[in-house]
Design a binder for these strands. Structure first.
Lengths: 201, 201
DNA sequence: CCTACCGATCGGTAGG
DNA sequence: CCTACCGATCGGTAGG
């Protein structure tokens, strides 16, 4: 079915996991409260005992993970001794985070644009902007320090890296026979830093 | 507004261009016939003079461009003398095609999954499968011939290349002051083939 | 190209 | 956690 849902002692958390799977699979607008209710084994109206609105469910699903990301990136910057290692560590954090939170990442990537105009979800676009500004700063510092190739457009190269780490949640499957997570991480690092860093990595 | 719509002598084509822009911007399911009608300057009911159903509009928008792609890739394979040049030519075709048909590509990338289960749009998934099989064949042949690095997972590397060329339609804007199309193509080629090909390009 | 309308489905509420 | 229901919106039709 969804392949996303998990168990937990808490009924509210169960419902959230079910909803996250359906939102990721079918999109937020194309998932009805009736569908969520049916999957959770109750009437749609009963969901309103746990959540005030459908928007509240989405908020509860995405907010915590997303808003903790800027801090995680800043911690990497602060704790990485060699500047050459910062960007690869960013890529690895993004990939492993996406793999661990596939439903949330898929929802964010898919709904980001349609939620951008809604006040209540403005934090999504703002947080993505914050994250991308952190990445851009690292890329530009890397170019200034001669660590990153100066002959490519920094913004385009950055967009490509973000595309790569952003789309992984949409095709990566844990337990795939074709590749392990470590293999995906290694290939993406090879791919990106075989071409971007000065003099190989 | 949509930034996608174009003019044409034909009213039907005008409506299609408007619908394509709205589908790309808001998603197929989240675009109503009333919205399309209002943007085209008529009542929703009047659209049914030109199209039998909303699905017919989507079909007319995406079918021609998509179904011509496999032939275009095969032509490149047949006409490229040096095997080393095939994959870069694929990337360039994908990028320039996406840039020239941004709305269509955006729709295809976004709706691909949700349309996969519908008979009438099965050709979309089938055509993508066909295209990806062509790419995979080239990657595997390149590895066998020692042109492409054998130390990375071919399927993961392929997925990354397809992610890159597939997502460009979603952020590339003609007339951007930050980068020209040629600059995007060059950066993507540098990026991919600086790291993937044996001994540089 | 329009007015008028249909049945289905949506998120959400009332009241238990 | 349920039944019963609301107003809004959807794709589409009838008839001109």
């Amino acid at each position: 079915m969804t392949a996303y849902a998990a168990d937990s002692g808490n009924r509210r958390e169960d419902i959230l996991a079910i909803a996250a799977g359906l939102f990721a699979e079918n999109g937020f607008d194309n998932t009805s409260m009736r569908q969520i209710g049916a999957t959770a084994g109750m009437q749609a109206a009963s969901l309103y005992h746990y959540f005030r609105t459908k928007d509240d469910m989405l908020d509860a699903i995405v907010r915590d993970y997303l808003t903790e990301l800027p801090g995680a990136y800043r911690r990497i910057m602060a704790e990485t001794a060699n500047p050459r290692d910062v960007l690869p560590a960013f890529v690895e954090l993004a990939l492993r985070g996406a793999a661990r939170n596939r439903a949330v990442m898929t929802i964010l990537v898919h709904e980001r644009k349609s939620l951008a105009g809604r006040d209540r979800f403005a934090f999504i676009e703002e947080t993505f902007d914050e994250i991308e500004a952190i990445w851009l700063g690292v890329v530009e510092a890397g170019i200034a320090q001669g660590i990153i190739r100066a002959d490519l457009n920094a913004r385009v190269a950055l967009r490509m890296m973000l595309d790569l780490v952003g789309s992984v949640a949409q095709w990566y499957r844990p337990n795939s026979r074709r590749y392990t997570l470590d293999e995906v991480v290694k290939t993406e690092l090879d791919f990106i830093f075989g071409g971007v860093m000065v003099g190989g990595r």
